[in-house]
Amino acid sequence: MNAIALTDVSKSYGEILAVDGLNLTMEPGRTVALLGPNGAGKSTTINMLLGLIRPTAGRIQVFGRTPDEAVARGDIGAMLQEGTLIPELTVRELVDFIRRLYPDPLPLDHVLQMADLTDLSSRRTDKLSGGQTQRVRFALAIAGAPRLLVLDEPTAAMDVESRRAFWGSMRSYAARGHTVLFATHYLEEADENSDRVIVVAGGRVVADGTAAEIKAGVGGSSVGFSLGGQSSACLDALPGVTGVEILSGAVTLRTTDVDATVEALYRKTTLDVRNLQIHGADLEDAFLALTQPAEA
C-alpha cells in the first residue's frame, strides 16, 4: 500500500487552477521532496493531503484512507508554513499537549531531544527566537509519532546553522522507518535530504526521480578547474560534457553527469587538474528547463 496516492487531483480557486490533474504515489519509508517555485501548487497539495482543503476533483489517499480518516487515526503529523504558538505556555506543556492527542505518541523527553529542545523545555513560547520556534513546530509535528510526516517549507525562517541542525533532526526521524514528504523551493535542500524529488510547476508534476537524475535532465551542472598552459583538446569528448568554456586558463565544463565527467577527467586524461570545482544546477535554470516543455 502506498503512503500517499493522488489520482487526477485538481484544485481551483475561482478562475485560478492551483493544482492541475496531479498524479503521484509515494511508498512508505521514503523521504520525498516536493520541489517547485512559489505558486507551483506545493502548499495546496500539502493542505489537501492533510484534509485542510478539499480537492475540486480527483482522489487522495493516505495509507489507503481519506485524509480526514488518516488525520483522525493519528497517521499524519505536519509542520505548516505558518503558525504561531500559544504564548502563555512553555515548550514542554505545548509539546506534551499535542503528543497526548495521538494514540501512540513518542515519549516526551524523546521528542524534545529529537527537536533539540531539551534545554528550552521550560521556556515560554513567546520568548523563543525564530529558529527555536520552528524547532518547537517540528516537535509538534513528530510528537504523535505519525507514520507520515509532512513539512511545508520548514526552513524558510532559519539561518544556515539552524537549517543544518533541522535537517539532521528530520533525517533521524525518517531513519526510524517513517515516511517524510517536504516541500521546498531550494534545490540544494531537496538534493541533500531526500531520496526522491518530485518537481512541480504550474500545478503539475514536471519531473520525478533522484536529485541527480533531475539535475542530469536539466544539464545545468558544471565542473571547473585551472588548466594553466595545458591542451584543452580532449575536453569536449569527456562523457556527459555538453559545452566547454575556457577563460584565461580556467575551464568550465557544462555536463549532464558530473560523476562520469570528473571520473573521466582524472582517469582518462593525463591533465594535471587543479582547483576542481563542481556547481550544481542553478535553480532558475532548472525550473526554466523543466517548466518550458510542460507549457509548450
Partner: peptide
C-alpha cells in the same frame, strides 16, 4: 487569535475531533 495564527490548523491536523 488562534484562528488567525494557525493554531487552529495545528489542532485540525491532530486526531482531536
Amino acid at each position: 487569535q488562534e484562528r488567525q495564527s494557525g493554531w487552529l490548523r495545528q489542532l485540525q491536523i491532530t486526531p482531536l475531533p
